[in-house]
């Protein structure tokens, strides 16, 4: 896997990289909670609500991973059928596909934020630690918004005259 340069530089990409690293730290934290829980279980004790803490940490981490994956154009897609298509056709397709991704992601981000507001208003919480679910939604929303911005930037960037290069 190449360095960050490969994905091009820019403020959004740097933000995506930082958020992915932060998400990685959350994943490591979930790992630590789980290991601690195993360690305590070995002495006949359990951490109350460790699974719900892991769920929240990992859920936010995955949302924070999304912009980075988008910035790297790493989401799985089929390129084989169009690999030999003429350059203008491929660029047109990519422009349309990019816009579609941006729209879908924008929709997801909007609904997730609404879901977070609902969770806040309705007092949804976890079973044992009574952690408010809206914390998770609010944190995840950061990832979704950045994901939207990057997808949008990519779909617009494809309009510039530089030829679009297929993913290496």
């Amino acid at each position: 896997m190449g360095g960050p340069e490969a994905a091009g530089v820019g403020l959004l990409d740097r933000a995506a990289r930082a958020l992915a690293i932060a998400g990685g730290v959350l994943l490591v934290a979930a790992m630590a909670v789980t290991v601690a829980s195993v360690g305590r279980a070995a002495f006949g004790r359990a951490i109350l609500g460790d699974t719900e803490l892991v769920e929240l940490l990992v859920g936010v981490a995955i949302a924070w991973f999304m912009p980075w994956c988008q910035a790297r154009r790493a989401h799985v897609r089929l390129e084989v059928f169009t690999a030999r298509a003429p350059e203008p056709v491929r660029r047109a397709l990519d422009r349309a596909a990019g816009l579609m991704v941006a729209l879908v992601v924008a929709l997801l981000a909007w609904r997730l934020i609404q879901g977070g507001l609902d969770a806040h208003e309705r007092g949804r919480q976890t079973m044992f630690l009574e952690l408010p679910l809206w914390w998770g939604y609010a944190a995840a929303a950061i990832g979704m918004v950045l994901w939207t911005m990057i997808a949008l930037a990519q779909s617009v960037a494809r309009l510039d005259p530089a030829p679009s290069t297929p993913r290496p």
């Binding site: 799985v76 897609r77 169009t82």
Partner: peptide, 8 residues
């Protein structure tokens, strides 16, 4: 076929 990511 239109190069949209699988998940999307």
């Amino acid at each position: 076929l239109a190069r949209v990511p699988v998940g999307v």
